[in-house]
């Protein structure tokens, strides 16, 4: 079977926008991190889809970049969740509109 690039790109656009909706509307900081993971996954599929179906590219290129993005997503999750735990310990909330220490 052949996978049309168009359909895959439309799918990843919708997946990215779903993640964007979550990142914009969640109040919970962990929920925002979850939505960011969805967005990163959509971008990863785009990397692999482009390099394995366009001419004049090698498929290694996209997969290596996807691996780098996965590593950086892991660091994002680790640091972000550590910050969330630290904020919860100090402020007793992880709702982003209640964390207003730096606002006056």
């Amino acid at each position: 079977m052949s996978i049309p690039l168009n359909h895959l790109l439309i799918f990843t656009s919708l997946l990215f926008l779903t993640g964007l909706y979550g990142a914009l509307t969640r109040r919970n900081a962990v929920g925002i991190l979850i939505a960011i993971e969805i967005m990163l996954n959509a971008v990863n599929i785009n990397f692999v889809a482009f390099t394995s179906s366009l001419k004049n590219t090698s498929p290694e290129l996209g997969q290596v970049f996807a691996i780098f993005v996965i590593v950086l997503a892991a660091t994002t999750a680790a640091v972000g969740l550590a910050i969330v735990v630290a904020i919860y310990r100090n402020q007793k909330t992880i709702y982003t509109d209640e964390i207003d220490l730096l606002k006056w």
């Binding site: 052949s2 996978i3 690039l5 168009n6 790109l9 439309i10 656009s13 390099t51 394995s52 179906s53 366009l54 001419k55 004049n56 590219t57 090698s58 498929p59």
Partner: peptide, 13 residues
């Protein structure tokens, strides 16, 4: 995406 003409190969690399 639908307007762009992608320069794709026949089979998946």
């Amino acid at each position: 995406i639908l307007k762009t003409s992608w320069n794709t190969t026949e089979t998946l690399q």
